[in-house]
Write a protein that binds this DNA or RNA. Structure first.
Lengths: 210, 210
DNA sequence: CCGCATTGGATAGTCACGGTATCCAGAGCG
DNA sequence: CGCTCTGGATACCGTGACTATCCAATGCGG
């Protein structure tokens, strides 16, 4: 498959494919001559993953590049690779950590994670991310209660272990494992978000009786 | 409170506050002289809301402006205002709707919503948003099962009605109602997302035995 | 075997977004 | 009475994700 066919099959313009090649999101095609390269099914599949992450997940190109780099580093053990990919998907750290409110919120997060018995690294950026949200909710006068958080967390864990993680072939090829993880995190995460908004509309309509 | 104090109290630079005033995110202060205006608690509160939506929710400035405009249009009934605000938070429509895959996915969404007995307007953008995600999952070879979607939906509805909607003062002042709705949608939505990623890390660690 | 479209590769330009920076003239405070 | 602050207007900037242009080397169709 030449680049024009890859473009036609994926719906992605040629200049954009070249851009992805430059940024390392797509592996180079197999060179057949100085000015000719061949692309395969893997490229098409990768392209679909990239577009889904960009358009549905709004994941920055630079973040996708980091994940791809981890996949392609054959020396990296699978669990390290998955951890790298996972953390890359966290929201970039806000400048806020450093004040007193954040430190207090951070402690609430520690207590929550410990209380649930979850195995989360103590330097996981996700912890700060959650703490930051708690700070904002406090500032806005709608603090989250411990009960609320616990209930959310319990439900989340059940769904994650029942569906999302069950789909991941941890012991298959590196690329497939990371693909499943990323799809589980980003696309199913988004699906959940949309379902939430659908449920909100429905409840709102019911309450207001429209 | 003058603009410099508002800036100091909120941590938002003066030029940025002026920018928000220009964009209509923040109401004008009360003019006390040709070159002097007074800002109040409401402005500070509004600023905190704006920053939370921007920084945590990554909601575009233009979207926030639309929501504010609906709040300030006193002629608009509360349920219309809430609907406007809610739809503004949906992801901007992708160019994809129009092909066969999307139409089929859209039918699955109709069936799901109908099966759940939810009251969601038939032209809600949220429906297309969910359909689009289903299309991507199919293309990526990880289609969502009906059981999966149903389970996600049931859980979501329980949490939404038990917590998110319970917090909204539907019959209070317009501004407060929309604020609660938006916070419920955006900030709690984000909190859920982060909890999901925490749960995934924990499960992944458990399975890989690290 | 020739000519013109296609290819890979490199470089530069574009557009949207969310701010920043600069300027200005009129207050007001010390 | 001068120095700072204010509101208002306009112009500029940095990032991110492309998109356009050029170029020389193919290579296929006739």
């Amino acid at each position: 498959m030449r680049i024009s066919q890859l473009s036609a099959a994926s719906g992605v313009p040629i200049p954009t494919i070249k851009y992805y090649l430059r940024e390392g999101l797509l592996p180079q095609g197999e060179q057949t001559a100085a000015t000719r390269a061949e692309y395969g099914e893997g490229h098409l599949r990768r392209l679909r993953l990239i577009r889904a992450l960009l358009e549905v997940g709004r994941v920055p190109v630079a973040t996708i590049a980091k994940i791809i780099a981890a996949v392609e580093d054959e020396d990296m053990p699978v669990h390290t690779m998955l951890g790298t990919a996972h953390y890359a998907l966290a929201a970039p750290a806000e400048p806020s950590p450093g004040d007193a409110g954040h430190a207090r919120a951070r402690e609430r997060v520690e207590a929550l994670v410990a209380g649930l018995g979850w195995h989360v690294k103590s330097d996981a950026p996700t912890r700060d991310e959650l703490a930051e949200i708690l700070v904002r909710l406090d500032q806005l006068g709608m603090p989250a209660t411990d009960e609320h958080l616990h209930d959310y967390a319990d439900v989340t864990m059940r769904l994650v272990s029942e569906y999302d993680m069950a789909l991941i072939p941890f012991h298959g090829p590196r690329e497939t494992a990371v693909e499943s993880l990323v799809i589980g995190t980003v696309l199913y995460g988004k699906a959940f978000d949309v379902l939430r908004r659908l449920a909100q509309e429905s409840e709102s309509a019911r309450i207001l009786g429209t």
